[in-house]
Design a protein around this nucleic acid. Structure first.
Lengths: 232, 232, 232, 232
DNA sequence: CATGAATGAGGTTTCATTCAT
DNA sequence: TATGAATGAAACCTCATTCAT
């Protein structure tokens, strides 16, 4: 049996190597401009071998994106596990998302690609499902956290927690995407700092979903944070 | 003497015909999968003729997208000109955007495509600029409307009107994009109606930026609207 | 009748204008790289008008080349009419050819193009004939000059004067063509000055076809020429 | 172990097959009119495969031309190795060139194509260099043979052997080129047999560069040749 | 006579994917 | 499993030439 397992492990390692290479290429060139030739070269393998492990270029792309979902998962988990109160945790999740955007920008970009309708036509169902499963894990975690927040009376109970999560999420994603592609234009043309806008909108929305007591907590937390920044 | 003008008109019409065809193809296939051959066939013209009127495939794509911006412009203009009060106008703009999404879904998709980073890597600066210029006209209109709302004390003056516009806008765009690609999943898996979520978030955000008096107005307007719906 | 003639003249002028433009473009780009669009633009006419006057691009090319034949004709005529003795005239012809090569290089290049077999497939018979007729005029002049040289006992009579002309001619043309494209290589790699080689071969061949008396004359003429150069 | 070598051989053979096909097409149509489609079809391969082995159409053309240089090389080598005396060898070289012209006409045409200025404008430097290197091998052989002739006192020492080689060569090339395209015209119009003219000019020039003793040898050799012809 | 517009017939090159070994 | 070689199907674009006016 050990033989079988070793083979399995080796196969897995080979897949990871390919993903490493693909990631480098996709991050640099994007899906369309990247070529299988480049990826094969980066992986120091033949192009045909790539197809032994992945069904298509798009599949490979999605597999890389799934890695990003895993990173997001860790970040969120740390945030939720890390904070002591719901409000702290919530603030942590906000920061986790910002971190994802700032330090894993390439993954962030990949996620948005999943939403373009053209993309879906060229991806195997298996890989699409895999992506959805991973993506769902993240949503699951966020949503159950929101639900907990409601049951602990920190988050308003007159809205569906799922909807609140979606709204906060979508708002952030949308602004981040705009920051990614238009930050300079807005700064230059209208002197708007989109990063500040993002922070503001985060605050507004978070405040909007908290219960009155939690809102006070949140205000205090922000004050503390500001102090920390001043002391630095 | 009218000969020159007639020729001019015909040329314009020919351009429109090409755009119609290109639009059909782009809507179905997206920029990358669409081919000039297909467009030519759809336009019942030779490929060479396409190149006579448009410098490149990207140019053609841009021209189609700009059409969409024009449509958006009209919708917004009607909304702003149509309403009598600021609140009515604001509600009109909201509806205009929803209309854009619902009845010009393909244009809406094009716009979001312009925000994906992949796009930017493959498109000439000229094209990007042209799009930005048109896009800017729409923003200009929205932003100056918000500014007017502030000066008429219907919209809060403790936030930058530009930022308020961006936030409302981005939130809506993001949710719409999610509706476009994931509505069924959310309905099926968590019984969430994203369209309702969109409406809710619109309401929340609009209320958040209105002055107290305007908020009352807005509540009344919504009540009236509901009645109308009931009578239908 | 005057009307007809004026029209004829105007037509001729228009043709010349086109030829001027075509010449500029062909000289710069060569037959293949030149486009009818460029020529039309250079002529400030529409492409279609070009076709009103010339059957094809190749025809146009040939028409320009024929101009070059005319220039050659004049140069040769001047040389033959100019010299007082056969030997002087012969030397003049040699110089005329060198002048053609050095100061009308572009025409010279065109002539060699006429010899490539691919070229002929795309040219109208009319234009080919026109080229041959003009070309023939030049040969005629050279050949009858050689014949006169024979009858005046300055050129050997044990060879066919036509053959002598062809050999001298071909030798020169071939070396010039080599100078045009390989002069630097020969200079750099083997320290050969092809221009000097051309002069030498001219002298050898001219001496070879002259009668003994004429050869003496020729030697003297060369001595005189050298003096002139020294005095400069 | 031989697996690598066999693959190498097969790759080489495939290249040769492509060259065979390309040669057929180029010979018939010339560089410009030939298309990669035709060549692919002639080779019974896909166009893409052509590009797997050759970087561009020009590259392929070059490779064919270089084959011709190889053939020329062999012919010259045989001639030089074959003869016992310098004079015999020289006569052999002359015949070798004539053979090249008569039995490998298409290669001959390619070579002259390389001298047209239009060619040089459209070809990569790499290609030009490769051709020059091969071409140079042939010149090297001829030139060192001439040098040996000088040192053995069969060829005059008052001229540069390189120049003598160039002149004989160019003269022949030029006349051959004329034969190729104008033989009928000269025969028909002036009853000139250019092939005879070629022979004559060869004889004149060869005699001109030989030392007096060698010239006697050469005369004898020609007499012997004539006898042989008579006996046939 | 002149032309703007149209086009057919290619041009070369690219690349994801598939085989045969 | 791994791969070198092959390829089909497009990709975008060009240009000499022809019409309709």
């Amino acid at each position: 049996m050990g033989i079988h397992e070793r083979k399995e492990r080796e196969k897995e390692r080979r897949k990871e190597e390919i993903l490493d290479a693909a990631q480098r290429v996709f991050f640099e060139k994007g899906l369309n401009s990247a070529t299988m030739d480049e990826i094969a070269e980066a992986a120091e393998l033949s192009k045909a071998t790539l197809y032994l492990h992945f069904v298509s270029k798009e599949d490979l792309y999605l597999a890389v994106a799934i890695r990003g979902l895993g990173i997001a998962h860790e970040l969120f988990k740390e945030a939720i596990d890390g904070g002591t109160t719901i409000v702290e945790k919530l603030n942590g999740v906000k920061k986790a998302y910002t971190t994802l955007f700032n330090t894993h920008r390439n993954y962030f970009r990949m996620f948005s690609f999943f939403q373009t309708p053209q993309f879906h036509k060229q991806v195997s169902d298996a890989m699409k499902d895999a992506f959805r499963v991973e993506s769902n894990k993240n949503w699951e975690m966020i949503i159950s956290f929101f639900a907990r927040g409601v049951s602990e009376k920190r988050i308003r109970n007159d809205f569906d927690p799922v909807e609140m999560a979606i709204v906060i999420w979508s708002n952030a994603a949308s602004l981040m995407s705009r920051i990614d592609s238009e930050a300079e234009v807005w700064k230059y043309r209208r002197n708007i700092d989109l990063n500040k806008t993002l922070e503001t909108s985060f605050r507004l929305l978070i405040e909007a979903i908290l219960t009155p007591e939690a809102r006070l907590e949140y205000a205090e937390l922000l004050r503390d944070e500001e102090k920390h920044i001043q002391f630095k």
